[in-house]
Nucleic acid binder design. Structure first.
Lengths: 331, 331
DNA sequence: TCAGCTAATCTAAACGTTTCGAATAAGTCA
DNA sequence: TGACTTATTCGAAACGTTTAGATTAGCTGA
């Protein structure tokens, strides 16, 4: 910038004014400065600017697993919205590990991000403390976290699983196996609650033997499904609490020599773009991924623009949608 | 830091020395400063540090489509490796649009990233110019770009498609439809070349009517497959040049009332984690995604550490692997 | 003519670090 | 004792911006 100033026989202050369109600068000088900028190929240094302004125009984004299509879709939308608003996105993923998550959030805060969107991995006792020092907008997506009282956009998980389970019950299934996500997450707990609620509403007792922990991972779900399918009185249907796990479930079904939906019906949380071209065509609970991402990004932007000023934390709850295909058969 | 210095009755210089372990500071003073840091809850400002040091410890990463499982896997690995080395990752995706890509790269450079990993969308005439100003390490992945002479890690696309096509030929297929990616990309061109090469090796003429442009997108591939499948003498096999497009291909097959592999055999580029549990179990060309991500990240780290000093640009070419499943039947 | 105004431009401080060289104190040796 | 070392510690400049306030010049109108 000093170079530009010298070349244009002006001061750095005036150059700055021209670049930012701040003060009135005479047409001739503006002209001179602009050509100097072009000649020299000057680019303003965003770091110095950030230091002075106290704002980086970067939003931190942490998700548990960027390999998971659900998170991917959300990240993609968040990215799009924030980019359009002139913000950059710093992405971290932590492989569902709370410790790395903490590490990464600290790093993001050190790097002075202007806002934070977090899809928390599990219940994080430290999260509250880590965030307590800062005053930047934070929004939780997908999962909420005990004691962390910030904006959040989540799904009505219980309701969604209630609907899916009820659908299976209506098909006549009575022994419905449930492959649960980690109960350290709000989603894991809420989804399980929906399953229990549906059983109860149908007047069925909850049989603990039919519930297995899959921890949102394919491998764990495979083992869980294996256990359920080798039960003396095996379930006629299985529900998987997320997308990754249903792959494990299908692998177990295949390996045990059964087929879906003939021998065992399957439904799961989270939809796939390819779900209606491969067989079995999975019946799923589709999340409104675009809406989740858009809302989360928008809340951050609103907070940053001071639009929500000091409104209390908002908790947005969106609804899932049961997409019935052909992986569940009537009993 | 000034606060810490005052609290510890020391100078900022000494505080800095303690934090960075730079100079010898007496045990007592070190002690005093460390407790002051803890008491005050001081965090060093990474922005100011970056300004002074001229390094941000952030690597920019742009990919065409973060929704594509291939890119997702690569991003995930890159992320992991760089994080472990203490670098943050700024992610951009541009939806296969060259203009937004340019925009984003400029933004990343303005933000003073220390390095750049680019999976370029299409041939980008401006990329060379945009990158010309900088001296940071740049590595291209997946695709290369005319005139952009930097490190790159790519796949031997031609060979991979040659293998896949040859496999189909060996099954007896003679009319193999090819759904191509955009020919504005090196991958699009190289893969098509592999197809042609295989036909030629088998002594078959290349029939232009059997090649359609799918532009790496599901919708375009759907239309392309529709055209091929309604040809008077329709192909007995289809090859899709990437993962997204094969979904469109399968949709077309379904909508036209055919089935795979009975009526038409299908193979595609890029593997899916679920490919062997849903039917048809797709025969695919699997890319070594982990290796690609690791190598790309490692090259950036090596360059940054000065290990590769001023070695000429390295072009790493990895090999794909044909994973034979059951979506192609012998004719 | 000159006080008072406006418009254009500039000077210099600030943002929070790092680091070079200087200053101080303490110890060593002739 | 005084010159020389060594170990600590510090002052101040620098990184590249932004911006408040100062300065200057040119007008206006009494």
């Amino acid at each position: 910038m000093l170079d530009v100033a010298e070349a244009a026989r002006a001061s750095v202050a005036t150059v700055s004014a021209v670049i930012n369109g701040t003060a009135g600068v005479s047409p001739e000088l503006t002209q001179r400065i602009e050509t100097a900028i072009r000649d020299i190929g000057y680019k303003r240094n965003a770091i110095a600017r950030s230091l002075k302004l106290g704002t980086t125009r970067i939003i931190g984004l942490t998700v548990a697993d960027i390999t998971n299509p659900f998170f991917t879709d959300v990240v993609s939308v968040v990215q799009e919205v924030l980019h359009r608003a002139g913000y950059g996105v710093m992405l971290c993923c932590n492989d569902e590990d709370v410790e790395t998550q903490d590490e990464q959030i600290k790093l993001l805060l050190d790097r002075m991000v202007d806002g934070l969107i977090i899809a928390p991995a599990g219940d994080d006792a430290n999260l509250k403390r880590i965030l307590s020092g800062t005053s930047i907008p934070v929004v939780l997506i997908d999962r909420v976290c005990d004691g962390v009282d910030t904006d959040a956009v989540v799904l009505d998980n219980q309701r969604a699983v209630f609907d899916a389970t009820t659908y299976m019950l209506e098909l006549g299934h009575r022994r419905i196996g449930y492959i649960s996500g980690s109960l350290d997450t709000s989603t894991g707990r809420d989804r399980l609650a929906g399953y229990h609620q549906a059983l109860e509403a149908a007047g069925l007792p909850a049989d603990d033997a039919l519930m297995r922990l899959g921890n949102f991972r394919e491998a764990d779900a495979y083992n869980a499904a294996m256990q359920l399918l080798t039960l003396p009185d095996r379930p006629t249907a299985l529900f998987s609490a997320n997308n990754l796990m249903v792959i494990g479930v299908m692998k177990a079904i295949r390996d045990i020599g059964l087929s879906c939906p003939e021998d065992v019906s399957v439904a799961c949380f989270d939809d796939f773009p390819w779900a209606d071209v491969f067989r079995p065509q999975l019946t799923t609970v589709a999340q409104p991924v675009r809406a989740i991402g858009e809302q989360a990004a928008q809340i951050v932007l609103d907070r940053l623009a001071g639009r929500l000023a000091d409104a209390p934390p908002r908790r947005l709850t969106l609804q899932g949608r049961l997409v019935v295909r052909s992986s569940c058969r009537p009993l």
